[in-house]
Amino acid sequence: MRRSPEPVFWSLFSAGGVVLALIAPALILATGFLVPAERVEFDRLSAILTQPLARIAVVGLAFLTFVHAAHRLRHTLVDVGLRAYGGPIATVSYLAALALTAWAALVAFG
């Protein structure tokens, strides 16, 4: 059977969508409102997120959300009429997601 590679990208895309939907509101609430309002101390938040396991989780989340965005961007570009460039668009999109994940890892472990 001729296998499409799409299940890989699609499952990462789906996972990214789910974690984004769950995490983003919490992140916005915490970093956008609770920390500025001094309901949560930044140092405490920072202490939680810089534990070794938390750093790995942060990079994992960044990876999924970047792949999610890349996948959406890729298909949107194809849908608006760039189907002829589908291959290069996919390559650039996912490579960008990997590059951004590498950057996230540098920040998380830096």
């Binding site: 499409s4 799409e6 949107t76």
Partner: peptide
């Protein structure tokens, strides 16, 4: 149906 011309073409 599970090929690129099938479900995976759908966005």
């Amino acid at each position: 149906t599970w090929s690129d011309e099938g479900i995976w073409d759908c966005t």
